[in-house]
Amino acid sequence: MATMKSVQTGAVGKIDVVDIERPVPGPKDVLMRIRACGICGTDVTFLHMGGMPARAHLGGDLVPVAVGHEPAGEIVEVGAEVTDLQVGDRVVVNPQDAPTGIIGCGGKWGGMSEYLLIENAEVDKSVAVFPDTVPFEVAALNEPMAVARHCVNRSEAGPADRVVVFGAGPIGLGAAIWLKLRGVEHVVVADVIPSRLEKALAIGADAVINSAEEDMTARLTELHGQAANALGQPRPGTDIYIDAAGAPAVFNTTVASAKWGAKLVMVAVQKKGSEFDLGGMLRSELTLVASQGYPTEIFEVTPELVEHHERFARLISHRVPFSEVEQAFELTMTPGAAEKVVVTFDE
């Protein structure tokens, strides 16, 4: 029996690297050798929980989770009935297409493993092929960049819009890149970590704001001009606010700053118990738009990720070999220590 190493949740805040049986593809499946896999905030959430409930809606006991839903790799085995993939193809994955559950999010398989079974493999449905001009670790950004792209699509931002993105993590910076590639005239990124703001400028943001040190409303007015809310009170001319931070202060700042008809797109996971000023929303007729996942974007982003891969590569702060995967997760779980960690697998 051939085995492989796979990462799953262990004790609270820890991972276990376990040896499990290497899957064997059926007639409609392919086996993918993982060459890179990103670590996401969702993985960290599972670690903090020490797993996930066996039956979440019933409050069941916690069970280990095979983590990793941002893999990139190459096909090493192809089922007899698969006709559009071949050994050696370099692919990224749609984690949500697996019939045995979402890859890395409670499904049978996790992408932070040496191999991954792609069930019912189909190009542009379960996988997308990318060229060898793109490093595997950059291709592994495909899934989070699909999240960022959906957020931008939900914003419906146009060239003349003035946008501010709160949070210079991978999703926020990815949104900034997509906004600029979309032709949006002016994109501001706000964060509290200077190194992240430097990176925001490097990937093409027009301006940055350190929200821990600067007056957000005053700076946005300086950058986007002055407008007003429905009562005629002065407000910045910012058209769209994107929350990729998930902090209550972002929502409150937006409500306090929003002009008449502004829009807030919420892509970050919000903390429970946050209180919002509904009256302030009313005074600006602020539209709140929620953005979840990537209903259509998972492979729509792949060609542009390929075309602009050097720009997206700047989002990766740390490349850590699989032999040091414990340190990679510790790095991700340490606030402010890393922006985007990608685990790489040996040739």
Rank of each mutant, 00 (worst) to 15 (best):
D215P: 11
A176G: 07
N210C: 06
G232T: 11
A176T: 14
V188S: 12
E198K: 13
H224S: 13
A205W: 02
T221S: 14
N229L: 09
V188Y: 05
A175F: 04
A227K: 14
S211W: 00
L181W: 14
A176F: 08
G232P: 07
T217Q: 15
A190T: 03
E213N: 07
A218Y: 06
A202T: 05
T217E: 13
A207Q: 11
V184M: 05
L197Q: 02
L223H: 08
L201C: 01
L231C: 06
R196D: 00
G204H: 04
D206H: 13
M216G: 02
R219C: 05
S211T: 08
I177G: 07
P194C: 02
R219T: 13
L181Y: 04
G204F: 04
V208H: 03
A200C: 09
A227G: 15
E214Q: 15
A212C: 03
R219G: 03
A190C: 07
A176K: 05
E213V: 06
G183V: 10
V184F: 04
L197T: 04
S195L: 08
D215Y: 07
I193G: 00
A200I: 00
G204Y: 04
N229T: 10
R196P: 00
A176Y: 07
A228N: 10
L223Q: 07
G232F: 06
D215V: 11
A207E: 13
E222H: 11
M216W: 00
G183K: 10
E222A: 15
G172E: 03
V192C: 02
G204T: 11
P170E: 04
L220N: 05
V192L: 09
L179V: 08
G225L: 12
I171S: 04
Q226P: 12
A230M: 14
L179T: 09
A228P: 07
E222R: 12
L231R: 14
A228E: 15
G232R: 10
L223R: 11
G174T: 07
A228H: 13
I193Q: 10
A218E: 14
N210G: 05
T217C: 12
Q226G: 03
A205D: 05
A227V: 06
G204Q: 06
I193A: 09
G204S: 11
L179W: 02
G174F: 08
W178F: 13
L181Q: 12
A218W: 01
G204K: 10
A175T: 09
L220R: 11
A212S: 15
L197G: 00
G232Q: 05
S195G: 01
G174A: 10
D191K: 09
G169R: 02
G183I: 05
A176S: 15
T217L: 13
V184W: 01
P170A: 14
L223Y: 14
I203S: 01
I171L: 12
V208M: 06
E213A: 14
G232N: 08
G225V: 12
N210A: 08
